[in-house]
Simulated scan of single mutants.
Amino acid sequence: MNNSATAQPAAGVPETLMADWRDYFALLKPRVMTLVIFTAACAMVAAPGTMHPFLAFTGILCIAVAAGAAGALNQWYEADIDALMKRTARRPLPAGKMDPREALAFGVILGTGAVAVMGLALNWVAAAWLAVSILFYVVVYTAWLKRRTPQNIVIGGAAGAFPVICGWAAVTGDTPLMAWILFAIIFLWTPPHFWALALFMEADYAKAGVPMLPVTHGLLETRRQILLYSLLLVPVTVAPTLLGLAGWAYGGTALTLGALFLWMAVKVARSRALLPADMLAEKQLFKFSLLYLACLFGALVADRLLLP
């Protein structure tokens, strides 16, 4: 049961609420926001058509603010379990630096504003998908799935994939096949990326009672699932080229990056490390997965801009 409304400060932290701009910025999950902004911006560039630079900036800003709103609402709801995990215990709410009601209001205002501006400045198709992305992350993933099923990150991965739909729709006003392929790439990338992290954070999730796959099904099964999703991911990344929606500059990059990703996923699948300190293959895959997605979407932009 969520106890965010009555979250208590972590041990040794004064009860006086002393939130400043850095705490509000931390609520936005800026590291997560960076990847969301980048993939959405790449989708906007790759989409056919042109857009005034000011409108493009407005669209990216709306997507960034919406992602930050979802992060703030996620932290408001999960303050109780964040307090139990080393990785998240210093966040503003579990650390007692902010009243939970402030975080809730902050997230709602940002999310509502981002959707409204997207609709008024660009189009309501993009705005609708932006609203879906916020609600999916907060309601479906955070409130419904995360504490109930080890498939939380699989289904919840859609939340991180919706921004590319928003970016594409911001330019074109619709969501064609190519936009959904980009969605599928991020959707399939999320499980191996996040489970690689979950493998060496398993003790934290177990302590907080979060049913992540390593907690419920063990390390070996998680490693097997990482390889399985990696095998599904790579063909989808090449699909735009095979379908004539992108050139071979992108396709060749996707194949090269995919081969590296699969090699690292195989190393993870063969790993038998039990302690986080020994999980070198898992940490390597987690770090590379971030570079992988960035380079993949960067290649898509290069393919669109440099080739006729």
Rank of each mutant, 00 (worst) to 15 (best):
A41Q: 00
T88D: 11
T34G: 13
P163C: 11
T50Q: 12
L55W: 05
T142C: 13
L130F: 06
R31Q: 12
V164P: 02
G68C: 07
T58L: 05
A128Y: 13
Y24W: 15
A72L: 00
L27Q: 05
P53H: 15
A169M: 12
M118C: 10
K86E: 14
I37G: 14
Y141S: 10
I60E: 02
L104V: 11
V36D: 03
L93E: 01
G111F: 06
L61N: 03
L61Q: 05
T149G: 02
T149L: 02
K146P: 01
A161N: 02
T112Q: 05
R91D: 06
V36N: 07
A43R: 00
V140Y: 12
G167M: 04
F136C: 04
K146A: 04
F25V: 12
I81F: 14
A66D: 08
Y77V: 06
W76H: 11
P163L: 11
L110A: 15
G160W: 05
C42V: 04
A105W: 04
L93N: 03
M118T: 01
P94I: 05
T112V: 14
G59N: 10
V117I: 15
A161G: 06
W124I: 10
A72I: 01
V154R: 11
A69K: 03
A40L: 04
A131F: 08
R31A: 10
M118H: 03
I155T: 12
M33D: 14
A56Y: 15
A41C: 05
I109W: 01
D80W: 00
A103T: 04
V138T: 07
V139C: 10
W129N: 01
G156C: 11
I109C: 08
A70V: 03
G49S: 05
A46G: 01
G113V: 12
V125M: 14
A40H: 07
L55A: 13
E78V: 04
L93Y: 02
E78A: 09
G156H: 10
Q151L: 13
I81M: 13
A95E: 08
G157V: 00
A89I: 12
P48C: 07
F54D: 13
M33K: 09
G157P: 05
V32Q: 06
L35H: 10
L27E: 02
W76E: 02
V171M: 09
A41H: 02
